[in-house]
Design a protein around this nucleic acid. Structure first.
Lengths: 147, 147
DNA sequence: TATTGTTATACTCTATAACTATA
DNA sequence: TATAGTTATAGAGTATAACAATA
């Protein structure tokens, strides 16, 4: 007989599950793994898709500005953008002698549109898993924690 | 004049902020940084505190069982538990010729109690930041995403 | 003086494979 | 045959310091 049926207590007591902050971390990890698997079909990581959408919405944005927006160090943007550039998805556009504006290539725009479709499907499946009476409360509650 | 007042659009357009899944990741990162800073005052990382609470609630639990509960690979539990053992917080208790039950030492119990206090204060401050009408919906919504 | 882009580097976290000893 | 504990190792992701060139 299983030890995990409704008549017996679960094998391990987890005193952390009553904490919203703990549930927040676990839910973020679980859903991130889901999204990562979906984006991997496009050859993209989460951060790649995020950057593509951000560049699309902000043509000629700089690497530094993206880093500030996403909490990524300037230095760590370098290999990230190099990968996207090597993949032919973004191009650099000198703004002055120092800054470089980033833009999507045609291929980048096409990939971005696919990524947006994947993200929207992911977000829909995420919302669908939440009981209806809680659903609309999630985004405002989360926004209060980071924005 | 600032570019971020209520009469001008923000400097960068972020098309991702309307997605609950994105907000989930950002909120998790932001709150994890907060908790990490608080626990660092006790010389603990988040995973350390988690393990201490789990061992306290489940005396003689095995390393493998903790790993399953927390989604940590067996192999990665080894250095984690070694650190806690070296710090004198946990002890190993042979169950049979193969398994080792983990228990808290007296020092481990004291540190665990402190960690629990830090976590409860963190969780209270987290909930306090969420508007009252959304507050009670957070935990059930998150639970639906990972449990 | 502050900012941009960059290089180099170190550290943490995580994933994988393999091995042994025991249940 | 499956599981527990372990070792070794490789790969991400991230943090820090430093530098040159430009605003």
């Amino acid at each position: 007989m299983s030890n995990n049926n409704r008549y017996a207590p679960p094998t391990m007591r987890d005193p952390l599950t009553r904490y919203p902050g703990y549930a927040l971390r676990r839910a973020a990890n679980a859903t991130a793994a889901d999204l990562a698997a979906r984006l991997a079909l496009l050859g993209l990581k989460q951060v790649d898709a995020t950057i593509l959408l951000l560049v699309d919405a902000n043509p000629d944005v700089t690497a530094s500005a993206i880093g500030r927006q996403l909490d990524i160090q300037r230095a760590n943007m370098v290999p990230l953008l190099k990968r996207l550039e090597d993949a032919g998805l973004i191009a650099r556009n000198p703004l002055d002698g120092k800054s470089q504006g980033l833009v999507l290539t045609d291929a980048g725009r096409a990939t971005m549109e696919q990524a947006r479709g994947v993200i929207e499907a992911f977000e829909a499946s995420l919302l669908a898993r939440i009981p209806a009476q809680h659903r609309d409360h999630l985004l405002p509650a989360l926004d209060a924690l980071w924005r």
